[in-house]
Design a protein around this nucleic acid. Structure first.
Lengths: 226, 226
DNA sequence: TGACCTTGTGAAGAAAACTTCACAGGGGAG
DNA sequence: CTCCCCTGTGAAGTTTTCTTCACAAGGTCA
């Protein structure tokens, strides 16, 4: 069951939102201020918070990082009547996940809420399963090289791969290819060519992200060459 | 020297921006379209990209993830005349770093540019680490959770960490903390509080990169919501 | 003081990851 | 057909990583 917290100083809107959310089969409670919300967060956890930006006391913008600190995985959706691009940008930079402008249609709100709940669910799942796979795939240098090679070359034959990697014992490569195949990163065409799967491409992308960032920082501070 | 890329289909604005930036002592070049920019990115790297959202051909919004892929550490600032909250939110969700509304004052632009360059420099000033270390650090789910926790909380005491991770055997946590410490990802303050080192922060950043890219792919294929 | 919590260390064993070796079927060249 | 290369499997052994357990110094609170 999804637990939602509505934070708004407007009592009418607060109760309306809770009602609407409950009609949609979601569990919702309300808080009248950011401080109220923060107190509540100490007692229970929420999947999603609908947060008004303009409120007496601690305002929404200030509250975002405080909430994030208490509840790192909760999705935070900002609602505000005084929408500006600057506000939107700033609140996302502070750690909010989404932004919706008042007045909104119920359908629009529900779409946003549903979408964010779904993302949260996905994050939870991937945290447990996929990341282990990805990092296990990337933890080995030979496997990293393989992914990079396949990413660049597209498709490769087994022995070409072995030679490109400069490994004498081909069965060693075979072992790691098996690991990659079991992790769902590579597969083989009907004529035995190895290639990346979608997940493999994703892993390779992660890898290049990281390589590039290391490269960039190495470049930034050149060492003295003898 | 900071390398800046200006991407806009308006020729006049393009040259003006390049001139202004160069007057301020920054190196700037221009591209007339997103495709043009992407081609350029294959040849050289930039510290910052000023990207128009509305352009013929590939539009700015579409370009953001493509640029991110090529240049993960480059700051992307969106410029647009057709500013809307929704656009701002979406572009930041796609991976942009900041958002500025046309027409802008030169001072306002320069402030944004300077601020973002400064942030970028801050991110960069870390020494190169080898990939094996990073991936070894990230290969274990407990260590990942630890990095994320420390990244969010800043500093934590040992037992608080153990309880947050929900591990009964504290020596198990101790083992992994030792691993992380030996990998240079965490250290301890004089009063025994654990905290991330610079390299640890980088590893945590890598981790969040990957989580975000997974999240983005979740968004790409929304499933049916009950 | 005694009970209890915090913050460790080190050793032993279990589990996982990795390497090496022996072998084998299929296909092409001479 | 014979030789040799490509592509693989499986077992055995090695190394690394992870977990568990026993224990202990120091601090706190009653």
């Amino acid at each position: 069951m999804n637990q939602i917290l509505v934070v708004d100083d407007d009592q009418e809107l607060r109760t309306t939102l809770v009602e609407v959310l409950e009609q949609e089969g979601l569990q919702a409670v309300a808080a009248r201020s950011a401080d109220d919300a923060l107190e509540r967060l100490q007692l229970e956890t929420f999947d999603l918070i609908l947060l008004d930006l303009v409120m007496p006391g601690t305002d929404g913008m200030t509250a975002i990082p405080l909430i994030r600190r208490q509840a790192p995985r909760t999705r935070i959706i900002i609602m505000t009547a005084y929408a500006s691009v600057q506000n939107a940008v700033q609140s996302l930079q502070q750690g909010a996940d989404d932004y919706i402008v008042k007045p909104f249609k119920i359908d629009g709100l529900m779409l946003t809420v549903r979408l964010n709940l779904q993302k949260a669910r996905f994050c939870e799942e991937t945290e447990a399963v996929d990341l282990d796979k990805i990092f296990n795939g990337l933890a080995n240098s030979l496997r990293r090289q393989t992914l990079q090679l396949l990413s660049r070359q597209g498709q490769m034959r087994f022995m070409d791969l072995v030679r490109a990697l400069e490994i004498e014992d081909h069965t060693k490569v075979n072992f790691h290819l098996k690991t990659l195949r079991e992790a769902g990163f590579i597969d083989q065409t009907s004529d035995k060519l190895y290639q990346l799967t979608t997940n493999g491409q994703r892993a390779a992308t992660c890898l290049s992200y990281i390589c590039k960032s290391l490269e960039a920082s190495a470049q930034a501070r050149p060492s003295i060459v003898p």
